[in-house]
Amino acid sequence: MQGLDTLAEKDDRIMLVCADSLLAMRATDFVQKYPDRYVEVGIAEQNAAATSAGLAIEGLIPFFATYAGFITMRACEQIRTFIAYPNLNVKMAGVNGGIAAGEREGVTHQFFEDIGILRTIANITILVPADADQARQATIAAAGIPGPVYIRLGSGRDPVVFEKNSPFIPFKINIMQKNGNDIALFGNGVLLPRLIKASKILSDKGIGVTLVEVHTVKPLDIEGITKVLKDCGAAVTAEDHNIIGGLGSAIMETAAENYPVPIERIGLRDKFPSSGLPDELLDYYEMSVNDIVKAAQKAITRKNSTKK
C-alpha cells in the first residue's frame, strides 16, 4: 500500500481498514506511523466493508485493503448496497488480481472475476495500475476521485512497466506506442509487458501497431477508445482476467455501440487455472506473447476480409 502514507500525511481523513490483511498489503509501516488510522476487524471482509461504509458516512476516507476476491466476492453485497448505492467515499484495494499474481496459491487466491463483478455495479471507479509505482500513484489518485474506487493490484512482484514517476492519469486511455494503424492493442496490468513484446514482433513483420493502456476500466474512456478503433479498424484486448466481463468485454461493448470492428480477446478463457509460476501460468493459459501476435494477425485478417 505505497502511497497511503503520502496521503495520510496531508489528509487526516485517510484510514486503513484491514481484514487481517496488513501483512499481505505490506502496510505495517503505515500502521507504525499512524496507529490510530488503522481499523483491524479480523478475517471478516463483510464487516470490513460495512465498517468502512460507517467511517465514510462520517466523512472519513477509508481504504479497505485485502485480497481482490475477498473484497469483490466475499463482500460483494456489502460493496454494492452499503458503499456503492449511497455512493460513499470508500476506496478498495485488492491484491492478487489475476492468475499471475495469485500464482502458487491456486484458485482460492487467484482472482480473475473481480473487474467483471464490480463493473456491473453503478458508481464504482475501477483502476488497474500496471506496476508497483503506478499502483502507488493510483492509490493517491483514488483519494481524489469522489465516491467508491476499486484499485486492482497484483502480487507486488509484478514486472516494472513504466519508469518511476511516470504519470498515472485516471479516466483517460494511455497511448503508449503508435507505430501505425493496422491493429490496436488494448491492455492493462501484468499483460502490458507482453503487449510491448508482441508489438515489437508485429512491427518487425511490418505491421503497424497502436498500443494503448486502459488502466481505467470504469468509467471507460469511450471517446478515446472509439477514436483508436476508427483509426485502426481492428483490435486485440489483453488482460489477466476472465475474458468474460473485464476489459475485453468493455471494449467490445464500446465497439459494438460506436464503431464495430473485428476484435480478438486475450485473457483466461472462462476456466479455472492451476497453481504455478506467474509467467508459466500466463503462457499456459493462452496469454503468451505469441498468443497476442496470433490474435492480432487474426483480427487484421478479419478486417481485410470484411473490406472485400
Partner: peptide, 11 residues
C-alpha cells in the same frame, strides 16, 4: 452494527 462500528470509531 458494522456501519455503527465505523460511525462510532469516527466519532
Amino acid at each position: 452494527l458494522s456501519q455503527g462500528c465505523g460511525m462510532a470509531i469516527a466519532a
